[in-house]
Amino acid sequence: MAIDRDALSWYEASARQRVDALLDTGSFAEFLGPEERRMSPHLPLFDLPRAFDDGVVVGRGRLDGRPVLVAAQEGRFMGGAFGEVHGAKLVGLLRAAREIKPAAVLILFDTGGVRLQEANAGETAIAETMRAIAEVRADGVPVIGLIGGRAGAYGGGGLIAGTCSRLAVSEGGRISVSGPEVIETNKGAEEFDSRDRALVWRTMGGKHRRLTGGADAFCADSVSAFREAARALIGRAPAFDLATLEAEHARLRNRLEEFGDCRDATEVWARLGVNDPDAVPAMDARAFDETVAGVGGANHDAR
């Protein structure tokens, strides 16, 4: 049965549905599939249920006929969080990329960060993943992050996203390190009201990340939109060298100087040159892309 990529919502789809629909039909072959039962050795200690794939699907497939490696996190299993096995599968995939040399590695983020029940192993996995991505990129293989799941890319997942060659994000996708509830708990509701969904999305959501150059493509919430974005971004991966790193440092320093005194994302958008910042959250993907085209700084080769 053919999948309708236009009709399938990225946000609603499971990790397995995303992988199957994103890649060329029937091309996906999983590594360490559920039948291998590589489950968490830690969760039973906490009387918590395990998943056969520990919440991440990894394997190889084709995108437009070109070979790719792919990892997809399942945001509904423990918030897509990194446990020991989960992290090891992602690190293993990235290390395999150095030998296989695919056209790209695609990481379908959907994670709240480290799984607290296996925090040390999870933190280690985050660090190993970032190191592995740096090595893969240094070998000339682009690593593309796709972010549009309900868990977003938070905690260590947000850090890993920052090491990718390119990122595509949808309206529902969020990228940050500390989650809204974490900020509120530490700094108070006056600083950040985690129940104010509009505030959360305009501070951490896909549109803000795209406008400020934190993501390189904005997608409507469909698998076809993410597939298009992935195809385009693979061809636009920046170099991985000292010049790129220095450009990124300069970009971030500049961003702080330009926007450091802003009290709300709408102020940032206004300063970027968006005519009607209050209209941004309601824009559809096409109108938003036109807005992005009208501001400076959203497209860059710093990373």
Binding site: S14, R16, G33, E35, R50, A51, F52, R76
Partner: peptide
């Protein structure tokens, strides 16, 4: 030879068939 459906989440379950 095999199939899997569902996700381990609150009020949900995963079913592996072999």
């Amino acid at each position: 030879p095999q199939a899997i459906t569902g996700v381990v989440a609150s009020g949900n379950l995963e079913v592996l068939l072999e």
